[in-house]
Amino acid sequence: MLSRVAGSVYWLFRYLERAQNTARFINADFNQYLEDQDHQGNLWASLVAVTGDQEFYQEHYSSYSRESIIHFLTLDEDYDNSLYRCVVQARENARSIREIISSEMWEEINSLYLAVTEYRRNEGRGTDPFAFCKSVIHSCYLFIGLFYSTMNRGEAWHFGRLGMLLERADKTSRILDVKYFILLPDPAWVGTAYDNTQWAALLKAVSGLEMYRKIYRRINPRDVAEFLLFEKDFPRSILHCLQNSEESLRILSGPQKNLVRLRTDLETANVAEAMQMGLHEYLDNLQNRMNQVDLDIFQGFFAPKLSSETRKDHGYLGQHQS
């Protein structure tokens, strides 16, 4: 298939998955403390920290209030990873490959786009942001459901799945990392009910609390990390996402070396190792290695050149992001 088209399918799914995960971040049950705790600012600030875009935030916002952070994550037109921008970019990519995806998929993403632009036009007024995020998550589920049930398992499908799963693996690692940025008011709170509720909220953000309980029953940080990193049967765990990405990349005969190495490392690693290294550092390293895989895909598929070619590459709609 056309390189540009492959790139657009891949980015359509990355952006959509990114939008969905932003909605998940916001909807994580952190809000259950917000009304009466004095350190609520801290919880919300952690959401900014995990995006890795604090610098942008500090330049554009003066405080870490709940309103500012929700605005930043959902509506900010200048912030490329805001939910609004992600949906716009996903839809823009979809529009450029309408002949590739099914009409049902197009109509769903177009409806999501219309809903999000409408929400933005009203600056979110009159709609509860949590309800809005929930509707975004549902719309993404619907889109992915259509993707699985209406598209041939051809090249385009595998590029879509690859984009979705690599983005999901990255976002799961960031959700797990949220806890690093949430400082407990007192070290003595570690392992208390309060601490554990926060870990439970993380699991809820990835729709994993119930599945977690089937395996571990009790909540503790070590098990949560193990579950989100290594549980190959949980569809949002990093290992699961990478194993399935690898399958798509193999079918596409793409550059697999780095991905295979990363997957093997994860399969043989254990959570004690990660904890010893420091969970945050461990996740940081994972994210860097996943970025390398993304770069391999870009170079392998989306930017081929004739040897005689001198023309500058125009790139495609989705901008490469490291």
């Binding site: 298939m1 056309l2 390189s3 540009r4 492959a6 090249e155 596409l252 598929f301 081929p304 004739l306």
Partner: peptide, 9 residues
């Protein structure tokens, strides 16, 4: 004239 595809031109 060639098109640029994921499997070359």
């Amino acid at each position: 004239v060639y098109i640029r595809t994921t499997h070359g031109f």
